[in-house]
Design a protein around this nucleic acid. Structure first.
Lengths: 335, 335
DNA sequence: CAAATGTGCGCACAAAGTTACGGAAAATTC
DNA sequence: GAATTTTCCGTAACTTTGTGCGCACATTTG
């Protein structure tokens, strides 16, 4: 890397002090118009760019927020990211994105990284395999504002912005029932994720409200395409197979549907499917998938707005907030 | 943000100087074992973390590489990103990811950001709408190593790691011909992207090598799902419709296939499809899409390895390299 | 016992930029 | 013409960490 043009270079060439250059560039009234113009002109010619690192050191802030995300490959998370960037850029903040790849180890390293890089705030969606939260506690102990999104953890001093999983699941299942389904299977996320529990509750409530007894045997732990392909084969071959499957995300629903079609089942006549995400994939598969829109973009904007507000507060004495994003059932060909 | 624990805090509490603390933490032999132990113990208790910002300022490097990417939502780019992170983390580099969203304006801002944040190197895949490259020239003028990936620009002092678009297209089209297709349409990216030109050349070469005359009327500028849905309607209704479509990416191919199926055409009997990407979507659609695997993960690793080597070189006097990644035709149901 | 060597640690400065304070020269006032 | 104010700019301190140099004291050597 070449020697970057500094305020010193300008000062030397003009025969003035660095403080004069600094003030001239910021239109400080103490500096004469002549000097100011000269400084600005030379700064332009030399291509001077203020060194953010020095500024950050002085102000002990970086104007950077760190984002921890399981995998950007998921449509939901990449749409959240778009929302995050939208708001961050408007407020002159940079965004550092880190993927945990659903690995606890990597997540801990990333949290360390946030501390050593002194990010001003953190947006985090922890991995499925995270059961110990001391790395987040460290961030909180350093009084760096932390906002969880999508996946939350109640007992920490951290805000959270999450999808209204309960009502999303409730409406999705109600929709299936209104179409005539009675034996509705649920492919669920691990229950230690609050979202898994909430969706299960929504699922149960919808059943009960429509006079259907909850049957725990219809609930499976399965949240990827591959797993869905694997377990669906045996599930769908049974004579008392479900007449609908509600899955925790779109790809899981699509994986199950693929198996159903291979087994000769007609969608939606023999079996219905509902996903959760409203991803690109949901209108690529055939028939197009009925799904619950999670409004990731809006969630990203909301979470970032909240985080920036916390950062600007400049105190850590705030009441933790928990915001819930609306969802919407998008009805398509699979129901 | 709370006052972070600094080397000074430790020094004050122990009644020694900051330099002693600094050396003690780095096992400098000048420091007595007793002092060293005391320092380390207190550092642990207080939760001391070295301030990277100060270190960066001192060393004028940040151990950070900036990545400019059109959209992480694309499978190809997110898989590249995974490769980038893999290599970067292993070498103790952080990765800052920025999306241009195919917007030239945003790209220029991001390039500025790279400069003010003094990243040590840049990986970039510029937007489709970028025709002026002065923002990249600025990066180069500052002697910050720059590696283009996927999309390249020859005349700049920047390495590039790209997909072998020519041979990918050549083999894809040859495969279609071997299956019996003769009127093969090409849904192409804008030609000012080198990759668009190269794939067109590969397409032409494959046709000619198999004795088929190149017909420019079968080449369309179309590289998104939506556009494909729009233009395919009229194209496929013609009596001299193509008997195969080779598309610049998977989603475009899938969009076209969707229209074909709606028009009652049987895939692959009436019309064949080949995409380019080997994305998740390619095995979600039905029939599963034959496509050209771009090996994004490997490309990301390769590009990052090259960039890190440039950074370590510590001089800007190197011969620019141009690396080509192999591709592979993945045959599935659409051909 | 003096000189030479070794040990352990602090001072000062470096990185780039901001800013309180002070001081010299010019402009104004009486 | 002297006193005061204003204008304009420089000095030095400050953010955190690392390091060359040197100082003070202790130990070893002749």
């Amino acid at each position: 890397m070449k020697h970057q043009v500094t305020i010193k270079d300008i000062a030397r060439k003009l025969g003035v002090s660095t403080s004069t250059v600094s003030r001239a560039l910021k239109d400080h009234p103490d500096i004469s118009v002549k000097t100011r113009e000269a400084v600005k002109e030379l700064a332009n010619i030399l291509g001077y760019k203020p060194n953010m690192i020095a500024l950050n050191l002085k102000h002990s802030r970086t104007n950077t927020i760190g984002v921890l995300v399981p995998e950007v490959e998921h449509y939901f998370f990449s749409s959240v990211l778009n929302g995050v960037e939208e708001v961050a850029y408007k407020n002159n903040f940079s965004v550092m994105v880190f993927q945990s790849n659903e690995s606890y180890m990597r997540e801990v390293l990333i949290a360390q990284n946030f501390l050593t890089n002194r990010v001003d705030g953190v947006l985090a969606s922890f991995s499925k395999n995270t059961h110990d939260f001391s790395h987040f506690k460290q961030i909180i102990e350093n009084e760096i504002p932390l906002v969880f999104f999508d996946r939350e953890r109640g007992e920490l001093h951290a805000d959270s912005v999450i999808v209204d999983d309960y009502s999303g699941a409730y409406h999705a299942v109600s929709h299936l029932i209104s179409k005539g389904s009675r034996r509705i299977a649920f492919y669920s996320a691990p229950e230690h994720l609050v979202l898994g529990k909430n969706r299960l509750e929504g699922y149960k409530a919808a059943l009960e409200d429509h006079g259907i007894t909850y049957n725990p045997e219809l609930v499976y732990s399965c949240d990827t395409f591959d797993e869905a392909e694997k377990i669906s084969r045996s599930i769908l071959k049974k004579h008392d197979r479900p007449d609908a499957i509600f899955a925790v995300n779109d790809l899981t629903a699509i994986g199950a549907m693929k198996v159903a079609k291979k087994l000769g089942l007609r969608v939606p006549d023999d079996i219905r499917f509902v996903g959760f995400e409203n991803s690109r994939s949901s209108w690529i598969c055939e028939p197009e998938l009925t799904t619950v829109d999670q409004f990731g973009f809006e969630l990203g904007k909301e979470a970032t707005g909240l985080l920036l507000a916390r950062i600007k507060l400049n105190t850590f004495e705030y009441e933790v907030e928990r915001r819930m994003m609306k969802t919407q059932v998008v009805v398509r060909g699979t129901t």
